[in-house]
Amino acid sequence: MARFLVRRVLQAVIVTVIVTVIVFALLHALPGGPARGVLGQQATPEQIAAFNRAQGLDQPIWTQYWHYLGRLVQGDLGESFTLNAPVSQLLANRLPKTLLLTMASTVVALLIALPLGVWQAARRNSVLDYTATALAIIVYSTPVFFLGLILIMVFAQAIPLFPAQAPQGDALGDILADPNALVLPVVTGAFATVAAFSRYMRSATLDNLAEDYARTARAKGTSERRVLVRHVVRNSLVPVVTMLGYYIPVMFGGSLVVESMFNYPGVGFLFWNAAQTSDFPVLLGVVLVIAIATVVGSMLADIAQALIDPRVRSVAV
């Protein structure tokens, strides 16, 4: 098990470094570069050259990356070009709000998706099962921004039950003080997750209903409902919990779209503003956080799967 853990951690570190190299190179290849985004289209070549010298952007690309990597190890993500604040401080202030939105969407999605998947499996091949499957496919294939737009049009304009703008504030307490304004962002973020995990749960439940232990329980006279509730559901949660580790980074990335739509003061909205102003350190810092979340989520999912199923551990090692 120790070798397995060391191997997964080393893989996570290597992938993270590769991601930083790719993103760093792509952002530097953007037309005009950071100087043009900060100083504007009217900036003179002399002003751009002075900006590049002040920010160290006139050095070779790999020298810039090496300096950035050294600062990153020390927890220094640089200074924002437009907000005049350390990027690490900006992320520290906004990351808890994004985590709140992501976790709330995840909890809501699982509370709906898991019972829905079991219900579909118990009524497999029925009209209701086919209907729920079709709706899940439609929702899953619909872009998040379009789902959010529909919710705003229906529940903020046609039927004004909830505000179209998310709660504002510098602290989590300010966000939680206005729960009514959190409804639309949370529901928007939960939609695609409900569609995905209801399918996972349905498939896992159907597989376990066909196992020998389920047939044995039925042969002993146990009712189908009791077999489903007492035995099948618990075993069906194992692959779903494992898949959750892989899917959390996806939901974290999706929250970037949700935050920009509802003006939610999280990391996603920070990224949106930084993209509009070509604030290079902020862009790189946010992308790095998402990359680390993806790598850590995948690593935790692998570890959870290895702890649950020793066969996975033996094959990986």
Rank of each mutant, 00 (worst) to 15 (best):
I303F: 10
L26H: 05
Y65K: 04
S88I: 04
R234E: 07
G117R: 00
S314N: 12
P185N: 14
K97S: 08
M251I: 15
Y130C: 04
S105Q: 06
I18V: 15
P281T: 07
I150A: 14
L270E: 07
F155S: 05
F24M: 05
R313C: 08
A192T: 12
I14G: 07
A219M: 10
S88G: 15
R71N: 15
V87S: 09
T102Q: 02
A25W: 03
E79H: 12
L101K: 00
Q305F: 11
F191K: 01
M1I: 11
H67R: 09
L149W: 12
A54G: 10
P34H: 00
S141I: 05
L300T: 06
I112K: 06
E79K: 05
V258T: 15
L99I: 14
T98E: 06
L228D: 00
R94P: 04
V315I: 14
A49K: 02
V186H: 06
H28M: 06
L206M: 08
L26Q: 03
A134M: 12
A316R: 15
M299L: 12
L256S: 01
P281C: 09
G268T: 02
V9Q: 09
T242I: 10
G117H: 09
W119P: 01
F155G: 07
Y200D: 09
L116F: 07
T131N: 11
V21L: 14
Q41D: 14
